[in-house]
Design a protein around this nucleic acid. Structure first.
Lengths: 204, 204
DNA sequence: CATAAAAACAGAATTGACTCAATTTTAGAA
DNA sequence: TTCTAAAATTGAGTCAATTCTGTTTTTATG
């Protein structure tokens, strides 16, 4: 049987996440008190801690939703990349960046990133590292795809290049979420400018 | 007059930093309670908060000491770089990395980085961003120096390249401090491998 | 050298994340 | 249906960072 218990569990998970997402957005991460999340989700404080190790893990669950969507969207670009190295990179990175503020505010990103460095061994910390790795590998996969298409030189170390591009983009994204005034368009332009050096070096 | 007040102030600042540095190392950032730092520094809890906005700012003061030393050491390399692009980069980055764990444990770095993303507008958050920028500019300055020496192509965008190299190194460093098992030698080797792509692209 | 204003100090009170022992609910065996 | 063990829930209690308010020390002034 599907089980009453299992259904209630899934339902409570959902209610907690929804309540938290709403309050995080409205009041900010610190402003959203656990008691308030519990009240909104109609569970007790203790129950929240039965589902999530700590407040950060709740945010982590929301971040994972976001990044997984982005990874899915990225697949399409890797499968059928634009026939030009610069555009291909820009398209993939564009997806990452444009999607980033859909569920999460900058403040939520800041907290999420902070927690993932602060507690790298927590469930969320590990999940976050895994998501970063997945993004890195997706960029690497794009490079390899472009090599297969004869658009990128064969002697390029695809994995190393993927890391380089992801790391740079990610640091730029961190700086982006740190400044509330920073605009997505500027971020994309800056990353494009940096990648231009690489594109010149690796294009056939 | 130099003033009793000013002298006492400097002295208390020093005592707080010394006490905190010792306890952070011994007990870790979270393990070092403010009350314990206050006791060790022979001031009251309230006084600590008169000197620093919060616990993170105390750590911030220690991190600033560290990074400023590194920047100083880096100056020498920029002034007289090895006569080979790869070695020049490796030497500068080597200084950054090798020095990094001299005053600060990995755990302290994790906390410091976390705080700087979490609260980018706090005194320490801003200071940390400024330090990152200084490091970025130092790498940029090295590139420009190498261009002047005729070792790097003139048409390279030195600033963009400096950002790219710093951002990549910094992300690698973040991952390095997140894993206690990670070794300095591996970190340096990985960064070297990534930079190799760039070096091939920019060397004359 | 007395004194008032300003600055700094102390530590008790507050706040909010997280824990834990007691209670309630569910599953499934008899 | 009834009962029991396991699982889940609850909310009052703990702990530590931060705030607040009254007191003490320093400085500057007459």
């Amino acid at each position: 049987m599907s089980g009453l218990r299992a259904r209630q569990k899934a339902d409570r998970h959902r209610r907690i996440i929804e309540a938290a997402a709403e309050l995080f957005r409205e009041a900010g991460y610190e402003g959203a008190k656990i008691e308030a999340i519990a009240a909104q989700a109609e569970v007790s404080v203790g129950t929240i801690y039965n589902y999530y190790e700590n407040k950060g893990d709740i945010l982590g669950a929301i971040v994972s939703l976001e990044v997984n969507e982005v990874l899915n969207a990225g697949q399409g670009v890797v499968a059928r990349p634009p026939a030009n190295v610069g555009d291909a990179l820009d398209t993939l990175i564009g997806i990452y960046i444009e999607h980033s503020l859909y569920y999460l505010s900058k403040e939520m990103w800041r907290q999420a990133m902070a927690i993932s460095t602060q507690a790298p061994d927590s469930p969320f910390g590990q999940a976050y590292t895994a998501l970063d790795r997945a993004l890195t590998e997706q960029i690497g996969a794009l490079i390899v795809r472009l090599q297969a298409l004869g658009l990128v030189r064969q002697d390029i170390d695809g994995a190393a290049l993927g890391e380089l591009i992801f790391n740079n983009m990610n640091m730029m994204f961190i700086e982006f979420v740190k400044r509330d005034a920073a605009r997505i368009a500027e971020l994309r332009a800056a990353v494009r400018r940096q990648n231009r050096i690489l594109v010149a070096a690796i294009a056939v």
